[in-house]
Amino acid sequence: MLVVSVAVMSPSGLVFVPAGIVLAVALAASEPSWSRVAVLLASAAIMYALGWILPVVWPNGLTATIGIACGYLIRFVAAFGVGAHLVATTSPTRLSAGLRAWRIPRAIAVTLAVMLRFFPVVASTSAAVLDAMRLRGLVGARGFVRHPVLSIERFTVPMIAASLRASEDLSASTILRGLGSRRTPVTLDPPRFGWPDAALALAVAALAAISMVLPSPLAEGIP
């Protein structure tokens, strides 16, 4: 992920963007998560259309601004795709075992693992709060524009309160079972650099090489 971020965000990084998007789409397809494939492709297409085609077809100040912005945002799409794969496929225990193998400090490694476990809890709580608001007629663009602070308050307060409550059992039980203790944990199945990882590394290297050799569609613009 770090590699992708560094590569894509560097000024000349546009060269790597198509490769990054290909990688992200391939990873999403391997899960398989077709919805993410669709989202990635669609957002990349929109960014490309707004960033490269629109300013040419209809050149003025506004489209140029949008074009520049999209040229910038398309880099985020690539990095997001790879990051989302990481989040979707890693279980909390695997993540903390992996981070431990990299000698990441305990406080950070355990916090990240616990965060990964809390995300679905908070996400489902948020969805439920939104449902409840919808049933009470508290959701709507008009209400939001008229009382933005009140709308925010009505969402965040129950969301935070219910999430804290829902996380209480989980944290009590995990702490009692020694999570985050000062003892040195042992991993049941230690993480290994197996052949799928090697294949992935090779594929990334190949994509990077192709990006450098072949002319990039983004840098060349519209023929």
Partner: peptide
Amino acid sequence: SFTARDIVTIAIFAVLYVVVVFA
């Protein structure tokens, strides 16, 4: 020196912050 509870506290609030910002 953090206790396990501190770690869990950081984690839950980091998630809450991320979800609110993301929303």
